[in-house]
Simulated assay, not measured.
Amino acid sequence: MDITQALKTLALDQWYKLLVWLGGLITIGSIFLDVKVLSNAQILPISFGVFLLGLGEWASRRKVPYKRETDHGSKVSGWEFQRFNSVYGNSLSVIGVLFILFGAYKICITGNPL
């Protein structure tokens, strides 16, 4: 496998890939760095939930070919991302949303201002 092909899949060309990057970076940062406004215990579940939500959406999307005819009579073909419900992807998305809600609950309970 070519390393450039593997790196192309990590490009931020879809919104859910951005969630994976941001969630992963903030999760790692909240583990190792001290945060001043909120506690690390409050940031960690939210960022991990964002990471899981992005992974779940990524697992539920596939790149499929398409062929369409335009209004002018020409034919266009290419690739598009479509969402296909999968147990794995939907499970990750639901668990991610639950982590985000748990983190928001922890922020509300402690009463720290944002």
Rank of each mutant, 00 (worst) to 15 (best):
L12A: 10
L25V: 13
G23T: 05
P45C: 01
G54H: 06
G49N: 02
D34F: 08
K8T: 11
L52V: 04
I31C: 08
E57R: 14
W21K: 10
I28L: 15
G49D: 02
L33Q: 12
L38S: 06
V37Y: 09
T27C: 11
S47P: 03
L18V: 15
L55Q: 07
I31H: 06
L38P: 02
S47F: 03
V37K: 13
A41K: 15
S30F: 05
T27P: 10
K17L: 11
S47D: 04
S39P: 00
D13L: 05
L22R: 01
F32K: 15
A41V: 11
L22N: 10
K36C: 02
E57Q: 15
G49T: 01
L53T: 07
W58E: 12
V20W: 01
L12C: 07
F51T: 00
W15T: 10
G24P: 05
F48G: 07
G49R: 00
V35I: 13
G23H: 01
L18S: 15
S30C: 14
L44A: 10
W15R: 03
L33F: 14
W21C: 09
S47C: 06
K36Q: 13
D34K: 15
I28A: 15
L19K: 00
L18K: 09
P45I: 00
S39N: 12
D34A: 13
L18E: 13
L53M: 11
L38N: 07
L52C: 08
Q14G: 01
L12E: 09
A41R: 14
Y16S: 01
A41P: 04
G56F: 06
K36H: 09
L44G: 00
L19V: 00
F51S: 00
Y16R: 05
L18Y: 13
W58P: 03
Q42F: 01
V50T: 09
L19H: 12
G54C: 03
D34T: 13
V50A: 09
L19N: 08
L38Q: 07
L38R: 13
V35N: 12
I28Q: 03
I31M: 14
L18N: 11
I28T: 12
D13V: 06
L25T: 10
I46E: 01
V50P: 04
I28G: 12
S30H: 00
L25K: 07
D13C: 00
I26T: 12
W15H: 13
V35S: 14
V20Y: 06
T9L: 15
W21M: 15
T9Y: 14
L25Y: 08
G49P: 03
K36R: 14
L25G: 09
G54Q: 04
V20I: 15
W58D: 12
F32Q: 10
G29A: 11
Q14I: 06
L53E: 02
T27D: 08
E57I: 09
Q42K: 08
L25W: 10
V50R: 01
V35D: 12
I43R: 01
V20H: 05
L33M: 12
V37A: 12
D34W: 08
L19R: 06
S39L: 11
G54K: 00
L44R: 07
G23M: 05
V50F: 06
V50G: 04
